[in-house]
Measured scan of single mutants.
Amino acid sequence: MDETGKELVLALYDYQEKSPREVTMKKGDILTLLNSTNKDSWKVEVKITVNGKTYERQGFVPAAYVKKL
Protein backbone atom coordinates (compact mmCIF):
# COMPACT_ATOMS: atom_id res chain seq x y z
CA MET A 1 0.00 0.00 0.00
CA ASP A 2 1.07 3.55 -0.59
CA GLU A 3 1.00 6.39 1.94
CA THR A 4 -2.71 7.01 1.25
CA GLY A 5 -3.64 3.37 1.89
CA LYS A 6 -4.19 2.47 -1.77
CA GLU A 7 -3.09 -0.96 -2.94
CA LEU A 8 -0.08 -1.13 -5.26
CA VAL A 9 0.85 -3.58 -8.01
CA LEU A 10 4.16 -4.37 -9.70
CA ALA A 11 4.37 -4.66 -13.49
CA LEU A 12 5.84 -8.08 -14.27
CA TYR A 13 6.11 -7.41 -18.02
CA ASP A 14 6.11 -4.52 -20.47
CA TYR A 15 2.66 -3.80 -21.87
CA GLN A 16 1.74 -1.45 -24.72
CA GLU A 17 -1.83 -0.16 -24.65
CA LYS A 18 -4.00 -1.43 -27.48
CA SER A 19 -6.99 0.88 -26.92
CA PRO A 20 -7.68 4.26 -25.26
CA ARG A 21 -9.10 2.43 -22.21
CA GLU A 22 -5.74 0.75 -21.49
CA VAL A 23 -2.45 2.12 -20.19
CA THR A 24 1.14 1.38 -21.12
CA MET A 25 3.52 0.08 -18.45
CA LYS A 26 7.10 -1.14 -18.28
CA LYS A 27 8.39 -4.12 -16.32
CA GLY A 28 9.20 -2.94 -12.79
CA ASP A 29 6.70 -0.05 -12.75
CA ILE A 30 4.72 0.40 -9.54
CA LEU A 31 1.06 1.20 -10.24
CA THR A 32 -1.86 2.12 -8.00
CA LEU A 33 -4.58 -0.55 -8.12
CA LEU A 34 -8.07 0.92 -8.49
CA ASN A 35 -10.17 -2.18 -9.24
CA SER A 36 -9.35 -5.89 -9.42
CA THR A 37 -12.83 -7.42 -9.62
CA ASN A 38 -12.38 -8.54 -13.25
CA LYS A 39 -10.18 -11.65 -13.44
CA ASP A 40 -8.76 -10.69 -16.86
CA SER A 41 -7.98 -6.98 -16.58
CA TRP A 42 -7.42 -4.65 -13.65
CA LYS A 43 -7.94 -0.90 -13.55
CA VAL A 44 -4.80 0.93 -12.45
CA GLU A 45 -3.42 4.42 -12.23
CA VAL A 46 -0.02 5.20 -13.68
CA LYS A 47 2.13 8.24 -13.10
CA ILE A 48 3.82 9.61 -16.20
CA THR A 49 6.51 12.30 -16.09
CA VAL A 50 6.88 14.54 -19.14
CA ASN A 51 9.33 17.46 -19.13
CA GLY A 52 9.55 17.34 -15.34
CA LYS A 53 5.76 17.43 -14.82
CA THR A 54 3.95 14.37 -13.43
CA TYR A 55 0.57 13.32 -14.81
CA GLU A 56 -1.74 10.55 -13.62
CA ARG A 57 -3.63 8.35 -16.06
CA GLN A 58 -6.15 5.59 -15.37
CA GLY A 59 -6.80 2.55 -17.51
CA PHE A 60 -6.75 -1.21 -17.74
CA VAL A 61 -3.88 -3.70 -17.91
CA PRO A 62 -3.94 -7.51 -18.15
CA ALA A 63 -4.25 -8.95 -14.62
CA ALA A 64 -1.65 -11.61 -15.46
CA TYR A 65 0.92 -8.86 -16.16
CA VAL A 66 0.86 -7.41 -12.63
CA LYS A 67 1.30 -8.66 -9.07
CA LYS A 68 -0.16 -7.18 -5.89
CA LEU A 69 2.45 -5.86 -3.47
Results as ranks from 00 to 15, higher is better:
10 L>P: 00
42 W>L: 03
58 Q>A: 10
63 A>W: 02
46 V>Q: 13
23 V>A: 03
33 L>D: 02
34 L>N: 01
34 L>S: 01
25 M>I: 15
45 E>Y: 07
32 T>H: 08
37 T>F: 09
42 W>M: 01
65 Y>D: 04
37 T>M: 10
62 P>M: 05
14 D>W: 05
45 E>S: 15
35 N>K: 05
33 L>Y: 01
10 L>I: 15
37 T>D: 15
36 S>L: 04
33 L>R: 01
44 V>A: 00
61 V>M: 01
14 D>L: 05
24 T>N: 05
16 Q>C: 12
43 K>R: 10
58 Q>M: 07
15 Y>D: 01
47 K>Y: 10
26 K>L: 06
68 K>L: 14
43 K>N: 04
46 V>A: 08
69 L>V: 10
18 K>C: 11
30 I>F: 05
57 R>Y: 08
56 E>I: 15
65 Y>Q: 06
56 E>C: 15
34 L>C: 05
41 S>K: 12
59 G>N: 00
69 L>R: 00
2 D>S: 13
12 L>H: 02
67 K>P: 04
18 K>T: 11
41 S>P: 01
67 K>Y: 08
47 K>N: 08
10 L>W: 06
56 E>N: 15
19 S>P: 03
58 Q>V: 12
21 R>G: 15
65 Y>I: 09
46 V>M: 10
38 N>A: 08
60 F>E: 04
21 R>A: 13
45 E>W: 05
29 D>M: 13
60 F>G: 00
37 T>H: 10
2 D>F: 13
20 P>W: 09
5 G>M: 12
9 V>Y: 07
68 K>A: 08
28 G>S: 02
52 G>I: 02
68 K>D: 04
35 N>V: 07
38 N>G: 09
49 T>H: 10
47 K>G: 04
60 F>K: 00
5 G>C: 15
6 K>D: 08
14 D>F: 06
39 K>M: 10
49 T>L: 10
23 V>E: 01
59 G>M: 06
56 E>Y: 15
46 V>G: 04
36 S>T: 09
2 D>T: 12
13 Y>H: 09
36 S>W: 08
48 I>K: 06
30 I>E: 02
27 K>V: 08
27 K>Y: 04
41 S>A: 11
58 Q>W: 07
14 D>G: 04
53 K>V: 15
18 K>E: 07
29 D>L: 05
34 L>Q: 02
43 K>W: 15
17 E>C: 12
29 D>V: 05
11 A>C: 12
1 M>G: 13
55 Y>D: 05
54 T>N: 08
52 G>D: 07
50 V>Q: 09
45 E>F: 06
63 A>I: 05
31 L>A: 07
12 L>Q: 03
24 T>M: 04
66 V>G: 00
34 L>K: 03
18 K>L: 08
28 G>L: 03
34 L>D: 00
18 K>G: 07
3 E>S: 14
30 I>Y: 04
56 E>H: 15
59 G>C: 07
61 V>K: 00
55 Y>A: 06
31 L>V: 06
45 E>T: 09
11 A>K: 03
3 E>I: 13
53 K>F: 13
56 E>M: 15
23 V>F: 10
64 A>G: 10
56 E>W: 15
18 K>A: 10
52 G>T: 04
66 V>T: 01
10 L>A: 04
17 E>W: 06
48 I>C: 12
27 K>R: 10
13 Y>I: 10
46 V>K: 11
1 M>H: 14
3 E>A: 14
23 V>H: 01
48 I>R: 08
50 V>G: 04
42 W>V: 04
57 R>W: 08
55 Y>F: 13
36 S>P: 04
54 T>F: 08
19 S>V: 05
38 N>D: 14
19 S>I: 03
